[in-house]
């Protein structure tokens, strides 16, 4: 990507007046074919791993080894799912994961949008520093802070508790950053007008900014929810009690040292995907369709 293409040009070029004026889609049918072939190839690459994964979760080992080129089972078996079901306290894990991912996501939406509101809409000294402090927290892999965080949680007495699981994850720099970029694009005149009417900042945030930000909320909610849902390490660090274990932590045990049954492993992966798929299709309507009102900046 060259520097030039990214530099904004002040104005569109003026071309010779005699050039044919034609709507954009009228041109380059050949290019269109190439484009759709490329997109179709991409879709296949994107989707096939999931079809294979679901298919293989229903296969026996013998079938898998005998027909590696086959996308779907030649014989279907449920033993992968039985294996997972028999060995895990499934509902308990599911409940814990829903509580962890759900409650944390709600808190994250609140705290992130509030923080982003200040960063995007208010002028104050130290704004750049505050923004950087937030951004910097994105820049450290969790492995680095694991030991100090564990020791902190111990001193707070938060190990093996729901709030120990939730509060440290109740805000995310990613969400703040995304909200901030979004809020900036909302016309300032809206809150100026409300302020003249004597509205407080909280009122502006709540009744002007948030209602206009549904697409951003849906995006952050989905991305946070899935990130938390998929998070294996954090719940395992905070909790060692089986009562507080989450689904990925339970499923991780099928991927241990001497795994001999691919179907069980992949059945576990498929199961952990289902709630995400549901969340995804629920949110997808919102954040792709709704986004057209206000652009993400």
């Amino acid at each position: 990507m060259s520097t030039e293409t990214l530099t904004p040009a002040p104005a569109p070029p003026r071309t010779a007046p005699d050039q044919r004026r034609q709507p954009i889609r009228g041109r380059g049918n050949g290019l269109d074919i190439v484009k759709w072939v490329a997109v179709a190839a991409g879709v296949i690459v994107a989707v096939v791993p999931f079809i294979w994964m679901i298919g293989t979760s229903f296969r026996s080992e013998a079938d898998l080894f005998a027909h590696p080129a086959s996308l779907l089972p030649t014989q279907w078996t449920l033993h992968g799912y039985k294996g997972v079901w028999d060995q895990l306290p499934f509902l308990r894990l599911l409940l814990n994961t829903v509580v962890f991912a759900g409650v944390t996501t709600i808190l994250t939406l609140l705290f992130d949008s509030m923080c982003a509101y200040a960063l995007a809409r208010l002028d104050f000294r130290g704004k750049t520093i505050a923004f950087w402090l937030v951004l910097v927290t994105l820049m450290v892999p969790f492995q680095v802070t694991l030991i100090p965080v564990f020791i902190e949680l111990f001193h707070l007495g938060w190990l093996n508790t729901y709030h120990g699981l939730i509060i440290p994850r109740a805000t995310s720099a990613f969400g703040i950053f995304l909200f901030r970029q979004f809020f900036i694009s909302i016309p300032r005149e809206l809150d100026e007008a409300a302020r003249l009417d004597g509205a407080s900042h909280f009122k502006i945030y709540r009744s002007i900014i948030l209602p206009l930000s549904k697409p951003a909320i849906a995006t952050v909610a989905l991305l946070n929810f899935t990130a938390l849902w998929n998070d294996l390490l954090w719940p395992l660090v905070v909790t060692s009690s089986p009562d507080l274990q989450t689904l990925p932590a339970g499923l991780a045990l099928f991927g241990g040292q001497h795994v001999t049954d691919h179907a069980v492993l992949l059945a576990g992966a498929v199961i952990s995907l289902i709630p995400i798929a549901i969340a995804f299709f629920l949110a997808q309507r919102f954040f792709v369709a709704g986004i057209s009102n206000t652009g993400l900046k």
Binding site: M114, Y117, F124, A130, I167, A170, Y205
Partner: peptide, 25 residues
């Protein structure tokens, strides 16, 4: 009056990030 609420709005996030990320760094 614009400045003070700014920090109020950011307080929860900054407190959490400060305690659980910045200080560990």
């Amino acid at each position: 009056w614009r400045s003070r609420p700014a920090w109020l709005f950011m307080a929860p996030s900054l407190a959490i990030l400060g305690v659980f990320v910045l200080w560990p760094i």
